[in-house]
């Protein structure tokens, strides 16, 4: 019961943070709020038993992401205006419509925490029952990540590597141009 209460409070907090992110003008404040948003979602993941995910989200979302966004802000400068040429009406109508359709879709979803939900039926019981004997690693997340779904993780690592290569290709280390090229020559 107390878990459900914390869950509801944290979700509401996330929603409020998201609204403030939309409304606030200063880009610096938005970046800080995005960090808070990530930290709150990390707290939510702990309540939902996903300790590994919470760990990652806290380090990545509240740490690295915020640093990178601040670095970009330093390079691009503070925003001068907040409105675009279309007013807020058309985007608001689009998101309300899309949101309404998605909410309609939730009627067919299993209730939160339903033990009979399809997500708990397929391969998950096998992972939970057999992985301690088959892989011999207490943390099931590690055994599924590294062993049962090793192909998947290999793909993810490749994506990270490729994204890193992409960033270096775009922002690569500029060779410092010698101010007086003729002096360099012997």
């Amino acid at each position: 019961m107390i878990e459900t209460l914390i869950d509801i409070v944290l979700l509401t907090f996330l929603a409020v943070t998201a609204i403030v992110i939309v409304r606030i003008r200063s880009l610096f404040a938005v970046i800080m709020l995005a960090g808070i948003y990530s930290l709150a979602s990390a707290g939510l993941f702990v309540v939902l038993d996903a300790v590994d995910v919470a760990f990652t989200e806290a380090v990545v979302g509240a740490g690295i992401s915020t640093v990178l966004l601040l670095g970009t802000l330093a390079l691009t400068g503070e925003q001068r205006k907040t409105t675009s040429r279309h007013g807020p009406l058309i985007p608001l109508a689009v998101v309300t419509l899309t949101g309404a359709v998605l909410v309609w879709g939730t009627w067919d979803m299993p209730l939160f925490g339903d033990p009979g939900a399809p997500a708990h039926q397929h391969v998950a019981p096998r992972y939970i029952q057999d992985s301690p004997n088959e892989v011999g690693v207490p943390n099931m997340v590690t055994s599924v990540l590294a062993s049962y779904r090793g192909f998947d993780t290999l793909g993810e690592v490749t994506v990270i590597f490729t994204a890193g290569v992409g960033v270096l290709a775009l922002l690569g280390f500029r060779r410092r141009k010698p101010r007086h090229p003729e002096r360099e020559k012997p």
């Binding site: 640093v67 990178l68 690693v137 062993s147 993780t153 994204a163 960033v167 922002l171």
Partner: peptide, 24 residues
Amino acid sequence: GILLIELGVGITVTAVMVLVFFAF
């Protein structure tokens, strides 16, 4: 196997994150 591939993942993630940070 898990020890080795986790080590591989760790090395790549560390290197890419630091490189990205240096790039920015």
